[in-house]
Amino acid sequence: MKICFVLNDIATETCGTSVAIMTKAHQRGHTVLVMSVGGFSFHYDSPIGLNCIQVLKTTKLTTSKKFLKHLQSKKRKKKMIMADEVDVLFIRNNPTEEASGRKWAEQAGIAFGRMMQQAGVLVLNDAYALSHAFIDKLYFEELPQCIKPASIITRKKEDILEFWEKQKKKMVLKPLEGSGGEHVYLIDEHEKNVNQIIKTITEQGYVIAQEYLPDIKNGDVRILLMNGRLIERDGKHAMIRRKMCKGEFRSNFRQGATAETVELTPEMKKIIELTAPKLIQDGLFFVGLDVVKDKLIEINVLSPGGLDHFHEIGYPDFTDEVIDAIEKKLHYKRLYGKQLSNRVLATME
């Protein structure tokens, strides 16, 4: 297959989940195309153009680090590929990670993805599902309340302070649109600058005030789902505990968290079972869940990560399973043509 990956910017990409999946696709003999989100080109009487770097099948790249180095080499030249030459578009750019001054980039991947989907390209995750879940922390609120901590979403200081009082003066504040643990605050009764923090964070946009879960002291668990199911290989599950470093309450890898193994509990199974129907219905193929004991605290649908950390706990990186699934979807698409919608194919096993 010919698969194109959409990134925020090739030049600034790091060696994470996207690169791990690209590397595996390349190693399995597929034609891998990689583009920055600014590389789309539309003309009314021709297919959408994709300004890509094509990784030649003959190039030997044994690790993700070597793949990324090859991709970012100044020797690599981009070329325009027409959308009708591509089998799969995998949208992996993360709008919440865009730098200031790049407002145009936030929805571009999804918008052009919708157009390519209409033209018959298999798009993952489904582009219309990504549009619906564009603010994934708001999409999170559509899930059953029994698996979520108490929370409010607002820009009103009085409402946040009232919620704080109800939570016995201990809550987590985070921006509605954000990732990687940036601008996330733990506000307890000892916080002297609560009003200033609320003012600062609400000036940036909507805020989530969320119930503090004491079990977060043990870190959270990143669970990776595919087609609404927990990814599994040889009895090992795509789950990893993110243990925060000393003096830190955020359990993001970017904030210094370390990886630990974790067992699948009945509470986690329940969260997956209650989340899956929504993900399958909406066409969300590859999704990350962040769980603390029996509560889901976040859902990641735009560009979920974590595959690049499984080697730290002696687990496989599960990229074979991701490529297997994409190959199967493309096979069904070729057999059934337009009888199966992109949304159905996106979560079909």
Rank of each mutant, 00 (worst) to 15 (best):
D294L: 05
I271Y: 02
L289C: 12
I48R: 03
D45N: 12
N227P: 11
K2F: 06
K170I: 14
R222E: 09
V37R: 03
F5M: 05
K217L: 11
F134R: 02
Q27M: 14
S251L: 04
Y139K: 01
I299K: 03
E203P: 04
I10C: 10
T14A: 04
S36I: 09
E263Y: 03
N300P: 05
A209I: 09
K78V: 10
S341K: 10
G180W: 06
K103T: 06
K24Y: 04
F249V: 09
W104K: 11
H70W: 08
V88M: 03
V207Y: 02
E263W: 02
Y128N: 06
V19N: 00
K65C: 08
F140C: 06
L89K: 02
N125T: 08
E327H: 11
G29D: 05
Q339W: 03
S341P: 09
G337T: 04
H26G: 02
G178K: 10
I240L: 13
G283F: 02
A259S: 09
I272D: 02
M268F: 03
G178M: 14
P266Y: 00
G228K: 12
T96E: 11
T261S: 11
I3G: 09
E85P: 06
L138Y: 08
G219D: 11
M268Q: 04
K157Y: 01
D320N: 12
I271W: 04
V221F: 09
P277A: 10
E263R: 07
M22I: 11
T261H: 07
E312F: 04
K333N: 05
I153S: 08
K199E: 10
F42T: 08
M35N: 07
L71V: 14
L68V: 11
H132I: 12
T63W: 04
R250M: 11
I208E: 08
A25H: 07
A83D: 13
K236F: 11
Q118V: 15
A209S: 08
L307G: 00
L143I: 12
V172Y: 06
L264C: 03
E321N: 00
K168D: 15
A259M: 05
V55H: 00
K236E: 15
K329E: 11
Y44I: 15
H183R: 14
C15N: 15
H311T: 07
S179D: 15
V291D: 01
E321T: 09
L161H: 03
P277T: 05
D136L: 11
V301L: 02
E349A: 14
